[in-house]
Deep mutational scan, measured.
Amino acid sequence: MATKAVCVLKGDGPVQGIINFEQKESNGPVKVWGSIKGLTEGLHGFHVHEFGDNTAGCTSAGPHFNPLSRKHGGPKDEERHVGDLGNVTADKDGVADVSIEDSVISLSGDHCIIGRTLVVHEKADDLGKGGNEESTKTGNAGSRLACGVIGIAQ
């Protein structure tokens, strides 16, 4: 089992970053940390998408990683996509320092995120509470600013 993974985020604009993942036990939580720069100040949706395909930019990554066919939600919700990591918060300089621990994603097994795409979005994720159909699919997080395929790390 891989215990570490990394993702280099890039987009068409100024947004870029490096996100690290570490899972010490196969059924334990995954620590997610790193930094994203070039964002507007505020909240930005942060999700693992189904495919590791960036051939047409971030759009070819498909929908959120959702092997259990659930509705979109927040990272602490029972009803959520596996890939729903909530929001990252950018400061006035456009930098989001990421520090998350998640017990639904994994670096092995059915919820493995390796080979899938991590995406940072234009807007805040409403965590499935926006009151419309799009909220239950995407959290109304808007366009995909930057993305990268999650790969095994040393």
Rank of each mutant, 00 (worst) to 15 (best):
A90V: 10
L118N: 03
L107G: 04
V95W: 09
D84S: 02
G11S: 13
V15E: 14
A2S: 14
I19V: 12
K24C: 12
G94K: 11
D97M: 13
T117C: 09
S108K: 11
T40L: 11
W33R: 12
S99A: 14
G130C: 06
N140C: 12
G73Y: 03
D91P: 15
E134R: 04
H49V: 00
N132M: 12
H72P: 01
K24R: 12
V15G: 13
W33M: 12
D97K: 13
K37A: 10
P75N: 05
A90Q: 06
F51G: 03
G73F: 03
D126L: 01
G74V: 03
D91T: 12
N140E: 15
V15I: 11
A2L: 11
L85E: 02
V82F: 13
D125W: 00
A2E: 12
G38D: 15
A124R: 10
T3G: 08
D91M: 11
I100M: 12
S106A: 11
S35H: 14
G139M: 01
K4D: 06
F65G: 00
E41S: 10
G28V: 11
T3L: 10
T40Y: 11
K76C: 13
V120F: 05
S143N: 11
I18Y: 14
S106Y: 06
T59P: 06
H44T: 03
L85I: 14
N140K: 07
L127C: 09
G74Q: 14
G11Y: 13
G130E: 07
N132H: 12
G28R: 08
G94M: 11
S69H: 10
G131D: 05
K31Y: 09
G83H: 00
E79W: 13
A146P: 00
C112A: 15
I100K: 15
L127Y: 11
F21K: 01
L68Q: 11
K92H: 09
G94C: 12
F21C: 04
A61H: 01
T55Y: 03
E101D: 12
G74T: 15
E122W: 10
A146E: 04
H72R: 02
V104D: 11
C112V: 12
L43F: 08
G86T: 02
F21V: 04
P29W: 04
S99I: 13
K137P: 03
G109L: 08
I114F: 05
S143E: 03
N54L: 14
L127S: 07
D12H: 14
E50W: 04
A141G: 08
K37H: 12
P14K: 05
H72D: 00
K31Q: 09
V104M: 13
E25Y: 04
K76R: 14
G128V: 02
P29D: 12
V15R: 11
V32G: 12
N27M: 08
V120K: 01
K10H: 14
G57D: 05
D110R: 10
L107W: 00
A5R: 03
T138N: 09
E101N: 14
G45M: 00
L68I: 15
S35W: 14
H49P: 00
D102Y: 09
L39I: 06
V32R: 02
V149A: 06
D91R: 05
K123T: 08
D77F: 11
S69F: 15
A56V: 09
N20L: 10
G115Y: 00
L107F: 09
V32N: 01
K76A: 14
K92E: 10
I114M: 10
D12L: 07
V95H: 06
A56K: 05
A146W: 04
D126W: 01
G142K: 13
N66C: 13
D125Q: 01
L85Y: 04
R70H: 11
I105W: 03
C7T: 12
Q16D: 08
V15L: 12
K4F: 09
I36W: 03
E22A: 13
D125V: 01
H111M: 11
I19L: 13
I114C: 10
P63W: 05
T40R: 12
K24F: 13
S108H: 08
A56T: 11
G94I: 10
R144Q: 01
T136C: 12
N27Y: 10
P29K: 05
F51K: 04
K24A: 10
G13I: 07
D77E: 13
Q16I: 14
N132Y: 06
H81R: 02
T138G: 09
